[in-house]
Structure formats: structure tokens, C-alpha cells
């Protein structure tokens, strides 16, 4: 392959040498645009104590287009569907080329702290969240324990 944009090199270097707290991103050996990501569940959230695996892919268009990100670990969250797809504005229409992998991952981490059931992707979960937040958060904690406290098998 011809080359990797300097920006991606630079971002990758920084991700590895100065990782954001609770976040790691490692490029795949055969594809430097494809990252294995792990985000630790934020403190004081139902996801605390879990390690959530994600995959991230920088399309050819990056940074003009947003990276594609998906959870690989099952998670009970109103903005994340059963297939791990994330409903986050900066990954869609609010993308800006000034954003980086790091900022995207930090945003996702923030999303875990602050679920937004008003902009849902998983309708049933969002409904659950709205109607019985306490119970929903308990479910989320349970899923975290069930699915996020062990490395998933892929």
C-alpha cells in the first residue's frame, strides 16, 4: 500500500506513547487503519469495572469522514445496539476533521458515563432507561459483570 497519512502515523504514535487514561488503541498488524480498542468502564457508571472491546476503522476518507467504531463487547446501553453500533453525533453528522481517534474514544467513554436515552439506537433499552432508570442501570451493571469482565472471545 502506498502510504499511511502522516496524521494517522502521528495519532497512532501518540495513542501508544501517551495513551488516554482508561483507553488503549492498537493498530492491527496487517492493517494500520484498523484498531483494536479497549475502553475501561468509567467510574461511577454501571460500566465501572468492565473492559469493553471495540473495533475502529479509519476509512480512506479519514479525517474528512468519521472513523467507524463498534463495540465488540455486549453492553446494555440505550445508545448502543445489539450489534455494538454506537449512536453518537460526532460519528455521524457532527464529525469534524479536527477530531481524532483519541477524542472519539474519549467521547465514547463519556457516553458510557452519560447515556442519552433521548437519542436512542436500541429502542427497548432506551425505553427501559426512561421508564426505570434504576433497573436499567442494574441490568447494565449485570451485563458488565457478565460480558465485560472477561476478555471476549473473538
Amino acid at each position: 500500500m502506498a502510504s499511511l497519512p502522516k496524521r494517522i502515523i502521528k495519532e497512532t504514535q501518540r495513542l501508544i506513547t501517551e495513551p488516554a487514561p482508561g483507553i488503549s488503541a492498537t493498530p492491527a498488524t496487517d492493517n494500520f487503519r484498523y484498531f483494536k480498542v479497549a475502553i475501561s468502564g468509567p467510574l461511577d457508571s454501571p460500566f465501572e469495572g468492565g473492559i469493553f472491546n471495540l473495533e475502529l476503522f479509519l476509512t480512506d476518507d479519514y479525517p474528512m469522514s468519521a472513523p467507524k467504531v463498534r463495540f465488540l463487547t455486549k453492553i446494555y446501553h440505550p445508545n448502543i445496539d445489539k450489534l455494538g453500533r454506537i449512536c453518537l453525533d460526532i460519528l455521524k453528522d457532527k464529525w469534524s476533521p479536527a477530531l481524532q481517534i483519541r477524542t472519539v474514544l474519549l467521547s465514547i467513554q463519556a457516553l458510557l458515563s452519560a447515556p442519552n436515552p433521548d437519542d436512542p439506537l436500541a429502542n427497548d433499552v432506551a425505553e427501559h432507561w426512561k421508564t426505570n432508570e434504576k433497573e436499567a442501570m442494574a441490568r447494565a451493571r449485570e451485563w458488565t459483570r457478565l460480558y465485560a469482565e472477561q476478555p471476549i472471545e473473538n
Binding site: P19, G22, I23, S24, T26, A38, I51, N53, A148, P151
Partner: peptide, 8 residues
């Protein structure tokens, strides 16, 4: 680095 990537 590795410790940061605890899960992985």
C-alpha cells in the same frame, strides 16, 4: 502500555 490495555 500493556497495563493500560488491561482488557486486551
Amino acid at each position: 502500555i500493556k497495563s493500560n490495555i488491561v482488557g486486551n
